[in-house]
Design a protein around this nucleic acid. Structure first.
Lengths: 204, 204
DNA sequence: GGTTCTAGAACC
DNA sequence: GGTTCTAGAACC
């Protein structure tokens, strides 16, 4: 095992943090373990030779999982673990935590730290962070592109995109400013109104 | 009817174009008409009192449609009309053509030009375009400049300016949002305070 | 932190 | 023009 022993000194500059895995990850892991025990030929069904089809399971390598039947998965399992029965919401969460779809004809997903029998790794999975650079996301790829031949063209496109972004921000600013002016107005009226009832200074 | 008669003269500057609706739209429309005829209590099922549940149908106003069972819809109907059985791909197409989801607990979608009995309107539905806005005035002159010699340089400078402007606008937006949240808080406190003095409804 | 609705972008 | 995978953003 390459994991750090319990009493090993912390690496310099790191603060000790006992991290819990995100609820979404634990639940997804639970769901797979549960299904591994009960799934397939569950209960009386097997006795009658009626093996239930797998709904979801670890893949054969144990480094990912497959939703074999999105319909049954959504209707029967999602509500048991989450607050919805919406398959796309489940997918959205997988993407949020950096899972990748790894097969084109199956709903198979993998994540470096999501493996059968390795529940402790879950705590190391975080949400994908958003870009700190402040660059609009649609420009990152193009701006950092190595394709020099199209640079002129890209520049034009980028410029247009920046202008659009810019316009959007201006519109939003205007809208926010209107809201603020509304609130200022409201505040004035309320204070006026209150002054009829009290001479106490109002501390807000 | 307000539609242009077949032989009316074209408005000046417009070229005559007999537009076909996008295949996606026709197929979706087909699918609904087909389902209207055959759906519900289809075939022998009805004879035995086993009415099949609706999979998809127009809504009651005829100005939108509802996918009642995404699972059956995906497995039974999508492959019949499209090259996949993927519900989210279908949703993606709806969004591409500007449909809106109009109910929170049903898969109901509407589009201004997508109505029961109005197939001719389909041709007026286009893909949503990515450039609705004009250029910001302060750069228009430079951008449309005929001075080709400096174009590359200017482009770079303009790009940098735009990005800086952009980041500034983001910071401002954040600041304005904070102000608004402050005002909301304040309003709440003032109303609370006022409520000690009066039970009169406050009309602002 | 989770859920929903919609869009970007690459690929076909 | 269609299909797939992933992400942004608003809202809860």
């Amino acid at each position: 095992m390459a994991t750090t022993p319990p009493h090993a000194p912390e690496p310099a500059g790191m603060t000790r943090k006992i991290k819990c895995p995100a609820p979404f990850l634990s639940k997804t892991y639970d769901l797979l373990e549960e299904e591994e025990i009960c799934g397939g030929g569950r209960g009386g069904g097997a006795a009658h030779g009626v093996e239930r089809l797998r709904i979801v399971s670890w893949n054969s390598e144990g480094n990912g999982f497959v939703v074999w039947s999105p319909a049954d998965f959504s209707e029967a399992m999602l509500p048991k673990y989450f607050k919805h029965n919406n398959f796309s919401s489940f997918i959205r969460q997988l993407n949020t935590y950096g899972f990748k779809k790894t097969a084109s004809k199956r709903w198979e997903f993998q994540h470096e730290k999501f493996k059968r029998g390795q529940r402790h790794l879950l705590a190391e999975i975080g949400r994908k962070k958003c870009d700190p650079s402040g660059f609009p996301p649609f420009l990152k790829a193009k701006y950092c592109s190595k394709n020099k031949s199209n640079n002129n063209n890209n520049n034009t496109k980028n410029m247009v995109m920046l202008m659009e972004e810019n316009n959007k921000l201006r519109r939003e600013r205007k809208d926010l400013e209107m809201q603020i002016s509304h609130f200022k107005n409201l505040e004035m009226k309320l204070l006026e109104c209150l002054s009829q009832y009290t001479t106490m200074p109002l501390l807000f």
